[in-house]
């Protein structure tokens, strides 16, 4: 309760929300297309990276359905593991991943949300497990020790540094539905400017649509300055305005806007702006 008090007292202080500032190596968002998948099929997985200091980085993705005995995907035969070397201060990594057919009998009676999609993004040399994955094919069976590690990431994360390491995950829904959940639609409502004025406020407008729960929210991130609100509740069909402040320094700033529909669906809009003034 005390921690909540201190946190709540801090909330609302300052002009921008600190949660909107991206100033470290980080996995910003990931999008599974579609967000609801039939077992035994593949889907496209896009991951959005931020690397403000342009460090030399590596990244891996893996799929894990752990029902108590480790990842079912460790047996191989599906695209459940991938490795890449992202470049630049921001990038998008798109690859195809698969869902193990072993889930078919489990989803016969309805959807199952038990498959985890993990992404580990590291400064090169800080994450030994990345090196273990680098040499494997996407459909190869996982070595036993690697499989145990990938099934329990919290066990080895404690031994990695915070700086230069970003681990993120989301849950994927699997079902036999012919009419699966789709990702929501996120589009700019107005023309997006090319340039933002340094240290000045700006506003961006978006339209959102799709199948939303009452927990659907719009999140916004920026590599300098900040947004006034970290997130905004939205409903289908809304036009949402988000207000931010451009940074004082630098030549460019990157913005990500993430729409989560509360049902597992995600859309991401991202753009780089030049700074003037």
């Amino acid at each position: 309760m005390v921690t909540v008090i201190s946190f709540l007292l801090l909330a609302g202080c300052g002009e921008t929300s600190p949660e909107t500032l991206v100033d470290e190596l980080r996995v910003i968002a990931s999008v599974a297309e579609p967000p609801e998948v039939q077992p035994g099929t593949t889907f496209t997985y896009a991951t959005y990276f931020a690397n403000p200091d342009e460090q030399d980085t590596v990244a891996i993705t893996w799929v894990c359905t752990n029902l108590g005995d480790g990842c079912l995907e460790a047996q191989g035969g599906i695209e459940a593991l991938a490795y890449t070397e992202p470049e630049g201060d921001s990038s998008i990594w798109t690859r195809d991943l698969g869902v193990t057919p072993a889930l078919v009998p489990l989803v016969a009676d309805g959807p199952l949300t038990a498959t985890q999609l993990w992404t580990l993004y590291c400064e090169r040399g800080t994450c030994p497990i990345v090196d273990d994955v680098a040499g494997l094919g996407t459909t190869d069976p996982w070595p036993e020790e690697l499989g145990e590690s990938l099934a329990n990431p919290t066990a080895w994360m404690s031994g990695l540094p915070m700086a230069g390491v970003s681990l993120a995950y989301q849950l994927l829904t699997t079902s036999l539905s012919d009419d699966p959940q789709l990702n929501p639609v996120l589009e700019p409502a107005d023309d997006v400017p090319d340039t933002l004025a340094r240290d000045e406020t700006f506003e961006l407008s978006f339209t959102v649509d799709g199948n939303f729960s009452d927990q659907a929210q719009l999140y916004n991130y920026i590599t300098g300055g900040g947004f006034k609100m970290a997130n905004t509740y939205v409903s289908a069909g809304d036009t949402v305005n988000i207000e931010g402040t451009a940074p004082k320094d630098g030549d460019e700033v990157r913005i990500w806007v993430v729409l989560a529909d509360g049902l597992g669906g995600v859309s991401v809009w991202t753009e780089t702006f030049s700074l003037s003034g």
Partner: peptide, 11 residues
Amino acid sequence: VTNRIFNHDRR
């Protein structure tokens, strides 16, 4: 706390 994991679903 020695490290952290980002939950995409709950952001």
